[in-house]
Design a binder for these strands. Structure first.
Lengths: 130, 130
DNA sequence: GATGCTCATGAGAATCATTCTCGCACAGGG
DNA sequence: CCCTGTGCGAGAATGATTCTCATGAGCATC
């Protein structure tokens, strides 16, 4: 079927490695700048392409926030995020009840093929202290 | 303090009236086009300004979806959305448990000033039939 | 190790939503 | 009716993301 032959290149490894070092969501532009500083010269367009591929493969999660998208290395199991709106630090959290709730509510209204997204924003202890 | 002296103009009324006629999320561009068709000539920039004002006043909810923001007339009480990803039809739903859950999880991780967003996407009965 | 077929890359242009600029119009209080 | 300041409109500006296309590099094969 739609086999996706994904080639392993220096640039993609660099993007993934960089994401592993981050502990919060980062925008594509940020990641690009960070790669430059690191010495890994990667084109901006390539960073976008690599991120899209990683999202498709489920290795990275996206967060669309006013105008720009932020990316983060994530575990492949279903989960939600607790994000610091100041520093971007993120904690993965699970909430089994909400899964059932979403399915039930959707069914009640005749919706099928259900998907949901839940994000919690706040100020982490470190940022609140400042 | 920060009093917001909001003037009532033909354009703002038109935007709000149009939103009342829609039963799903619509992008700013869509709303602008619809106003034109209707005969209400309103500048694109004005549509954006009116929408921002309405969001600030809590009369309208925003949904950021790949690239463009969508707006919808909403009740002022806290709620979540069940959105048809095909036709955009939307149902407002409430889930008290998730409110408590969000607060508890945030507290456990030392996060303060908590806020959360939860949206459920699916295909409504009408669209699934097609 | 060389060869070839593709897909990936990179620089800059192109696209698209959104915001800004600024001169003019109008809402609303006096 | 007049004044003042806010809102409007058209087009330019901004900024993120995507596209184009010629060149470079995986990876399988010989």
């Amino acid at each position: 079927m739609t086999e996706a032959p994904r080639r392993q290149t220096r640039q993609r490894s660099a993007v993934l490695a960089l994401l592993d070092d981050q502990d919060g969501f980062r925008t594509a532009q940020d990641l690009h700048a960070l790669l430059r500083e690191r010495g890994d010269a990667v084109g901006l367009a390539t960073v976008y392409r690599a991120l899209q591929a990683l999202v498709d493969d489920g290795l990275v999660d996206v967060l669309r926030n006013e105008g720009e998208a932020a990316y983060r290395r994530c575990s492949p199991v279903h989960h939600h995020h607790l994000v610091c709106r100041s520093c971007g630090r993120t904690v993965e959290v699970a909430d089994p009840p909400v899964e059932r709730w979403a399915a039930r509510v959707a069914a009640e209204h005749g919706f099928a093929d259900v998907q949901h997204q839940l994000e919690v924003f706040g100020t982490c202890a470190a940022c609140a202290a400042r």
